[in-house]
Write a protein that binds this DNA or RNA. Structure first.
Lengths: 206, 206
DNA sequence: AATGGTCTGTGACATTGCTCACATTGGATT
DNA sequence: AATCCAATGTGAGCAATGTCACAGACCATT
């Protein structure tokens, strides 16, 4: 099974070079994003290690292009469709995991879609901050680092939040400042500290 | 394998009665939707026969509830998770179809998400009309009915379009009237005729 | 042909978030 | 300590969409 190593920041999949393969992310973190006509990026998913992806190739009908970028250095297993059929889907446990992983991503994506339809920007941003914090604390647990819920730090820039929410950077800044004014968060360069998780949760539900 | 028949309009899945089952839609059409705090519905997917679904139960973490409603009379196969494991995932062809179906839904949903992030309402609505027309013409082909692309009819109300786009009904009406003024469509009660598919496609890309 | 209920149309106005155009700040680098 | 650059902050105006409050139009049924 061919293995590929890519460095941080590498865009290893793009619509210009569509490849009829499926990928397994063995190690690292991957960001999937679209690029608008105006060149604006929108992140649809951030994948953690252990995820199967590449299903975009089964259809190849992306209107604007979908890209995959390594956020951290990554180890990828590259498979053809036949590989998948023979190796993986014939093994009950693996196929179950693939289905589970796809289901989870689908549920998350549908949830985000509903959020777009129902919620204003502040609620969506609050929800995003909480989910980032959640992911982070899960990772911390794995590394047996204390993850005090009363003191959660998120390392990201306003620009990154902008790309994850589909909201312009200036608006993100304004909303975050508003959160800070109300004592919900603490802002540092490239870093956000959640102070009032309860209030943020409250906000995210509206 | 237990089979269930439900009449048109039946809401057979709701967050109040979450069931740990997976479903196979043997016959009919199903609409999945969320309900906002304010009681507004948002349709995330319309499933045609031959689709596996119910993966929401694997997680059960919907913030607001997700509902499934029979749009037409439906025949459903009800399976437990174990059923799925033993029967389906052990059969290569079936498991491959499940994965394919999930992948397709995921790709569609991510595309819609990107549309929300990038496009204005007119573009999203044009895209929706085209995709509805597309589905319809596919169905027509199956029934060997002529599907002249120059004369595509869609049967739906503004309210339904509203729920599929997450845009208020009044806005839908205004945008549709704008389309009509420009000769792109023809409007009838509960029915829309696409006159200029090319121009609509143009619009949907912006 | 009268009635009633959905569906559609429309005006006026409020809001949100985008757009453009900068000023400022933090921290890494030399 | 001087410089530079990405990241952040902010104002003013504007366009798109939501909101509310109806009016009218179509169709099925009585």
């Amino acid at each position: 099974m061919p293995v590929k190593e890519v460095g941080s920041g590498t865009v290893f999949y793009s619509p210009e070079h569509p490849t009829e393969v499926l990928l397994f992310l063995k190690k690292g973190r991957v960001r999937l994003f679209y690029l608008s006509a105006g060149g604006k990026a929108f992140t649809t998913a951030t994948l953690e290690s252990g995820t199967f992806f590449g299903e975009m190739t089964l259809l190849g009908q992306s209107l604007y292009g979908k890209y995959a970028e390594a956020v951290t250095p990554c180890t990828l297993c590259v498979m053809s469709r036949d590989d998948v059929k023979t190796f993986f889907l014939s093994d009950l446990r693996i196929s179950y995991r693939i289905v589970e992983s796809l289901s989870k991503r689908l549920a998350e994506t549908e949830q985000r879609l509903a959020d777009f339809a129902f919620k204003q920007v502040p609620a969506r941003l609050a929800a995003l901050l909480l989910s980032l914090a959640d992911k982070k604390s899960v990772n911390n647990q794995n590394e047996s680092v204390s993850s005090d819920p009363a003191f959660v730090e998120i390392a990201c820039t306003h620009e990154e939040l902008s790309q994850m929410t589909g909201v312009h950077r200036e608006t993100i800044t304004r909303v975050l400042n508003n959160f800070r004014t109300n004592g919900l968060i603490e802002l540092h360069r490239g870093k956000i500290v959640l102070l009032d998780v309860k209030a943020l949760t409250e906000l995210s539900i509206v």
